[in-house]
Amino acid sequence: MDTQPIDRLARQLTKQSRDENWNVWTYFDWPESIPDDAWCMSPELCSLYGTEMWSELSEAQQKKLSRYEIGNFFSLTLQGERPLVAGMSDRLYQTKISSDATEYLHHFIDEENKHMVMFGMFCQRYLGKVYPEKKVAFPREYVKGEEEMSFFCKVLVVEELGDYYNIVMMRDERIAPIVKQINWIHHRDESRHLGFGREHTKALWEKWSPTWTPEVTQRFREWLVQYVKSSWADFYNPAMYKDAGLENAYELRQKALAHPATAEHRAKASKKLLGFFARTGILESVPAV
């Protein structure tokens, strides 16, 4: 049916994607290196910001940490995009997705592939590595619609949290220009992905949640809150602290995660995401993350 609002949106987004199409292989002028005295991530976005662990560092140490923080952020985004592309590819030409949506998903996949190329190139060039994922996949059972909802909610979590960071950094004159540029181009594509993702997730919720028992709904909501929390915890990566030369990396992470200043940052940066979940009824209220 081509009268569905989601199909109209998909056609609009397809057109925009074609108008704003860009070439990841030629788009960037990769600098040979990023100078040591440059900020690589906006200081306010660094995971220790606002805590005594941050103020105890010299500016040089803070800048060094910002380099590994951006590496971790780009790695997280890349690691989140891998299953996203796999899941989107699985859905192409399936009956549960309309032909307009399938056409848009081709752009979604194309753009995410470019993002992975760009984040991978950045991390390899300036850090010599991409931070590995620590997730382990366990098989589990779902009721009808639950896996579909989980998949699109995961996509939204990765994209909304990332987008908050992208928007701050694409406007930040203090940071290395290559980082600013990557954040800008990522945000431009992601705003379309998010537009589609929000509408599609809302439609899925309206379709499936009425068929679930209260126990399934409860289990799903608990999982979602845990998933958001665990996605946030990834921003406090001990390997990144260790690479930046900080001692006691694991305790540093635990302390930073428990600090009220970082909780405030997470609440602010998740406002859009959690507001969406609460507004649509996917969550009953905005949880603390």
């Binding site: 620590k134 665990s230 001990p238 694991y250």
Partner: peptide, 20 residues
């Protein structure tokens, strides 16, 4: 839950003093 495993892995790394 499976989402606790990431945390557990980091705890194990801190016990081992080495990455997993």
């Amino acid at each position: 839950s499976s989402l606790d495993i990431v945390e557990l892995v980091l705890f194990i790394e801190s016990l081992r003093g080495d990455e997993v």
